[in-house]
Simulated assay, not measured.
Amino acid sequence: MSVVIIGGNERMETRYADICKAYGYDKAKVFVKENSSLKKKVGTPDLLILFTNTVSHKMMLSATQEAKRNSVPVARVHSSSVVALSQLLAERSASL
């Protein structure tokens, strides 16, 4: 399974990926800064996570449009903390 995280803190990128791997998401892409080729790099993951507190509005819109076009589920989390990510992934894994 794969996951894409948009937003968050730059210093936490590897920590976000490690947490995702702990919950069974083998591939984790983390985009903390706006990138011109974001649409091409998102692809079709199993889950798209938006940290709404730390992401720009423009980046959020482009990510949600790309997710909608590829039928990817989007999870919005206000906080970009490790605890918030862990809780979200725990809830998602429990519902599967």
Rank of each mutant, 00 (worst) to 15 (best):
M1E: 01
V3Q: 05
V4G: 09
I5F: 13
I6N: 12
I6D: 10
N9M: 10
E10Y: 11
R11Y: 03
M12E: 11
M12L: 10
T14D: 12
R15G: 04
A17F: 01
A17P: 02
D18V: 06
D18E: 15
C20G: 15
K21T: 08
K21M: 06
K21V: 03
A22K: 11
A22P: 08
Y23I: 04
G24P: 01
Y25I: 08
D26Q: 04
A28G: 01
K29T: 02
K29C: 09
V32I: 12
E34I: 04
E34C: 10
N35M: 10
N35K: 06
S36A: 14
S37T: 10
L38V: 03
K39Y: 06
K39H: 07
K39V: 03
K40R: 10
V42I: 15
V42G: 10
T44Q: 12
T44Y: 07
P45T: 03
P45N: 05
P45D: 04
D46C: 04
D46A: 11
L47E: 02
L48D: 10
I49C: 07
L50D: 08
N53K: 14
T54F: 06
V55L: 14
V55W: 07
V55G: 00
S56V: 01
S56M: 06
K58E: 09
M59G: 05
M60K: 12
L61M: 14
L61V: 09
S62H: 11
S62F: 09
S62L: 15
A63L: 12
A63D: 12
E66C: 10
A67E: 00
A67Q: 09
R69M: 05
R69Y: 11
N70E: 05
N70P: 00
P73A: 10
V74H: 00
A75P: 06
R76F: 10
R76Q: 13
H78Y: 13
H78E: 05
S79L: 11
S79I: 08
S80P: 06
S81R: 14
V82A: 01
V82N: 00
L85R: 00
L85E: 00
S86V: 02
Q87D: 14
L88W: 03
L88K: 12
L89V: 01
S95Y: 08
L96V: 13
L96N: 13
L96I: 04
